[in-house]
Amino acid sequence: MSQSAEQVLDQVYLEVRAKILEVGASLDRISRSSGDVASDERIQKLLAGIEALGTSDDNRAERIQLIFSDDYVDGWNQ
């Protein structure tokens, strides 16, 4: 990695801030709308993905991908 963490933060800060705002506004829009989707599996996955953002490891993207993935069953072709 040829850039320092501070350099990367400088580059992505506003972009990531905007994306987080977009997520917040989208969830607000769902809340304001009629009906209840609290039990919808997709909402649960979105919230699980947001929770994964708060961890401190360096493979958040992979873990979020897996939250949105079907399970693989080892030995399915036996």
């Binding site: 991908q65 897996l66 949105f68 993935s69 079907d70 399970d71 693989y72």
Partner: peptide, 8 residues
């Protein structure tokens, strides 16, 4: 595959 089907 796309999206949720990709990993499996």
């Amino acid at each position: 595959p796309h999206l949720q089907d990709k990993f499996k």
